[in-house]
């Protein structure tokens, strides 16, 4: 079931069209990544979805209900984690969380309990009573995420949560997101890091210039643009015969002989791999190792927009 449905979302700032007819959906327990360079419209899009920013057009449905910027019922289902830590540095971590929990309608005692739970979840229980102003950047970002979980959201919106954090904090954030999706939370995750999208997201929407260029699973995106997997076999024997045998495989593209083996481009290498190995060993050659390298989202973005993701 789709927790979030977005269609025809539009937003302009003066003459600039920041988001142009954006549409996608996120299911229960799914992590959906909005991937795009800085200025692609990611933050504008999720600000509208979170109800922080008004929209010029389009529709957003959360939990099957129409969502308006002033819609309290649908907002109660959303956990929003802004890009920069949105916290009060002169309050302790715990007091910050209690304040935001109370805004979400939790009673005083329940707010205290929930604050303790989310502090535990992001590994900050020991620092909960310290002023946020004394936190490191990574700790502040973890607390920022914790604040987005206070209302036990069905939809968690994370706006580039790992920007500028150390690897340890990044892994902690990834672990937290995985635990949440395992519990059925739908996660909308924006990033301009291709590796993050590939590692974390079940589906990815590629956003550029305010428009959705393509969306799907990683494999679907790669297939969409016709990219092929690169298969490298380290082998010994009659490599010329091996090249000819591989070229006879229907799915194979370019096949070339290397000093220590053969290399070919092929669609859906994982499915074809048994036939590749059979073709090579059928010539009497012995295979030492196989490496399959799938095309990444960077290549997809380059193909779709004509420029690199981080240009």
């Amino acid at each position: 079931m789709a927790v979030l449905e977005v269609s025809g979302l539009c937003k302009s700032f003066g003459e600039t069209l920041a988001v142009d007819g954006l549409g996608f959906s996120v299911g229960e327990g799914e992590t959906y990544g909005l991937l795009g360079p800085n200025g692609a419209g990611k933050t504008t899009a999720i600000s509208m979805i979170a109800g922080v920013l008004g929209r010029d057009g389009g529709e957003v449905r959360v939990g099957g209900q129409r969502h308006h910027p002033a819609g309290r019922r649908t907002k109660a289902m959303i956990g929003y984690v802004p890009q920069e830590p949105a916290l009060y540095p002169d309050l302790t971590g715990r007091r910050n969380l209690r304040f935001f929990a109370r805004l979400h309608g939790l009673a005083r005692e329940e707010a205290g309990r929930r604050a303790a739970e989310v502090l535990e979840l992001v590994g900050l229980t020991g620092r909960g009573d310290d002023l946020v102003g004394t936190y490191s950047g990574g700790m502040a970002r973890r607390l920022n995420i914790a604040a987005g979980l206070l209302n036990r959201p069905r939809l968690l919106i994370l706006d580039e949560p790992t920007a500028g954090v150390d690897p340890q904090s990044r892994n902690a954030i990834f672990d937290a997101v995985r635990r949440l999706t395992a519990d059925g939370v739908a996660v909308l995750y924006t990033t301009h890091y291709m590796e993050e999208a590939e590692r974390l997201c079940d589906r990815v929407g590629i956003l550029d210039g305010g428009r959705m260029r393509a969306e799907g699973t990683r494999r679907e995106l790669v297939a969409l643009v016709g990219e092929r997997d690169q298969v490298t076999l380290r082998a010994e024997g009659d490599l010329g015969a091996a090249v000819r045998a591989l070229a006879a495989i229907a799915e194979a593209g370019e096949v070339s002989e290397r000093e220590d083996g053969v290399e070919l481009l092929v669609r859906d290498a994982r499915a074809v791999l048994p036939r590749i190995l059979a073709a090579v060993t059928g010539t009497g050659a012995s295979v030492g190792s196989v490496e399959v390298r799938e095309p990444d989202l960077e290549a997809v973005f380059l193909h779709l927009t004509g420029r690199a993701l981080r240009d």
Binding site: R73, Y80, E84, L103, A147
Partner: peptide, 15 residues
Amino acid sequence: SAGTLARLLAAPVSR
């Protein structure tokens, strides 16, 4: 400017 207004606006409360 501190970014906390966005979090306030995202909560189920009126402007």
